[in-house]
């Protein structure tokens, strides 16, 4: 969305931030080039990125406004922490939305108490809480 293309060549070559544990090209996809397109491959399908995009756009707008006021352009890089946080916190929104929908669906047939109990069991009895709070960048919670 930022460099207006789907060619990952320059994205894989970007410098590593001090707070990052690994390089952008952690899995070495940059050296695996498609014989058909001549472009470097990407292990990850774009579905989760599509779901993240509204949060990314809102953050871009907020960063532009705040950056123009405070002049903190460097921190508002698309690879910076602000955008990482926006993607991570999107998981909380998706998880809450899913739980709300399930709760309303169940409450129709089984009552409010049973629906809320089920939601509590889903949150604490499955890996939903872990992938919402501890490892929110995985695509599991959006699915």
């Amino acid at each position: 969305m930022c460099d207006h293309d789907l060619d990952f060549t320059n994205d894989y070559q970007r410098p590593r931030y001090p707070w990052e544990k690994t390089n952008a090209d952690q899995y070495g996809s940059g050296v695996v080039v498609s014989k058909i397109t001549g472009r470097p491959t990407n292990l990850f399908p774009g579905g989760v990125a599509l779901l993240w995009s509204p949060f990314y756009m809102v953050t871009t707008l907020a960063a532009t406004v705040i950056g123009s006021i405070l002049g903190h352009g460097r921190e508002f890089s698309p690879w910076g922490r602000l955008f990482q946080y926006s993607v991570m916190y999107s998981g909380v929104v998706f998880a809450l939305g899913a739980m709300l929908l399930i709760c309303r669906l169940l409450a129709k047939d089984h009552g409010h108490r049973a629906a809320v109990t089920t939601i509590v069991i889903i949150l604490f009895g499955t890996n939903l809480l872990h992938y919402t709070v501890i490892e929110p960048s995985y695509g599991l919670r959006t699915s």
Partner: peptide, 19 residues
């Protein structure tokens, strides 16, 4: 369709396993 488009643009096929 967006996922299929990305597959075609990056990997050259609509239905493909990136791995």
């Amino acid at each position: 369709s967006p996922v299929l488009f990305v597959n075609h643009y990056v990997l050259g096929q609509l239905l493909v396993v990136p791995q």
